[in-house]
Simulated assay, not measured.
Amino acid sequence: MKWSRLLVAAGIGALVGYVVREQVNTTTSYSPEKALNSAKEAFRKEGPISGSWIYMKPKELVKNGLTYSVYHGGITRTIEGQDKPFEFYVDAHTGTIVEVAESA
């Protein structure tokens, strides 16, 4: 009798663990490192990069009436011998660059 209860408890524990793991994987499917790398790849197509940064925690960005969970980062490009800073926002779930703007 005790073994059957132990097996049932172990099965329930495994099921709960699986559900929690799947929930975590679907809510944060894109890491900040991946987001920074994808932004760097896009900027490199236009020219050399001399620096980059990214905030590790996603934040909300409202654009065109839609709310996105995004990573906020920046890249410095060398254009005609001068460094020009840009800021970008990358969707934390898909890795899509949502917005890019030249910094002041």
Rank of each mutant, 00 (worst) to 15 (best):
G65C: 05
G65P: 02
F88Y: 13
M1W: 11
Y68A: 01
L66F: 13
M1P: 08
H72A: 14
A14Y: 00
A42L: 05
I49C: 02
I12Q: 11
E22Y: 03
R77P: 05
P85T: 04
L66P: 00
G95D: 06
P48G: 10
A10L: 15
V19C: 09
E99D: 09
E41G: 03
K34N: 01
S38T: 12
A14I: 01
R77A: 15
N37F: 03
H72N: 12
A10F: 15
Q82K: 15
G47F: 06
H93A: 06
P85W: 01
I97E: 03
L6V: 13
L7F: 08
G11E: 04
W3Y: 12
Y18M: 10
V62W: 12
A101L: 08
K63S: 02
G74P: 00
Q23W: 04
V24T: 11
K63Y: 08
G51L: 06
V70Y: 06
I79T: 11
Y68D: 00
K2C: 07
G65Y: 01
K84A: 10
R5A: 12
A9P: 06
Q82Y: 09
K45N: 10
P58H: 15
V24R: 14
Y89F: 15
T27G: 01
G47W: 01
A9I: 15
M56E: 14
V90M: 13
A92P: 03
V20S: 09
D91L: 07
N64M: 07
E41T: 11
T27E: 07
T28E: 14
I75V: 13
I79Y: 05
E22I: 00
E80K: 09
P85A: 08
R21G: 05
V98I: 15
V100E: 07
M1V: 11
S38W: 02
K45G: 07
F43S: 04
Y18S: 11
K63A: 01
R77S: 15
L66A: 12
S29Q: 07
E102L: 07
S50Q: 07
P58E: 14
V24G: 01
I97V: 14
M1L: 12
P32Y: 10
G95A: 09
S52A: 11
Y18E: 08
E33Y: 13
G47I: 05
I75Q: 02
A14N: 00
I12D: 10
K40Y: 06
E60G: 02
S69P: 00
V98W: 01
H93K: 11
E41Y: 04
I75A: 02
T26W: 09
T27V: 12
L36R: 08
G73P: 01
V70A: 03
G74R: 00
E99N: 10
T28W: 15
S52Q: 08
L6K: 10
T26Q: 13
E102N: 02
H72Y: 15
V20L: 09
I79V: 14
K40R: 14
L6A: 15
G65T: 02
L6W: 13
V19T: 09
Y55M: 15
K34H: 03
W3F: 12
A92T: 05
S31G: 05
L6Y: 14
T94Y: 03
S103Q: 04
S103E: 06
Q23F: 03
S52I: 02
K63Q: 02
V20D: 03
